[in-house]
């Protein structure tokens, strides 16, 4: 299934490594990445494809949010459908 990962917060070392490592471990393929740093603010958006069959999507959302708390960033994993619904007809 398609999902969107967004990472925001104050820039620090190793953010991309932690997030992409987590995604690889959990069977998610990164299909597109966009990343900017404005001043000291870091913002990254990833389009990912998550293989079926592992843990539930809901569990994965919780785990990636707690990874965010560990590394001091705000990380969200959301169904791509919410963005499609709101922005495309």
């Amino acid at each position: 299934m398609r999902a969107v990962v967004t990472v925001t917060g104050t820039d620090r070392k190793g953010v991309i490594a932690s997030v992409s490592g987590f995604l690889a471990e959990h069977g998610a393929n990164i299909e597109d990445v966009s990343q900017t740093i404005l001043g000291d603010q870091f913002a990254m958006i990833m389009m990912v494809n998550i293989a079926e069959g592992g843990e539930t999507f809901s569990e994965l959302c919780e785990k990636i949010a707690s990874l965010g708390r560990e590394i001091g960033m705000n990380i969200r994993l959301q169904h791509a459908a919410i963005f499609d619904a709101m922005h495309t007809i």
Binding site: T56, S58, C61, L77, Q78, H79
Partner: peptide, 8 residues
């Protein structure tokens, strides 16, 4: 679960 998965 819906709230978590869709982030709303």
């Amino acid at each position: 679960a819906l709230s978590r998965e869709y982030g709303i």
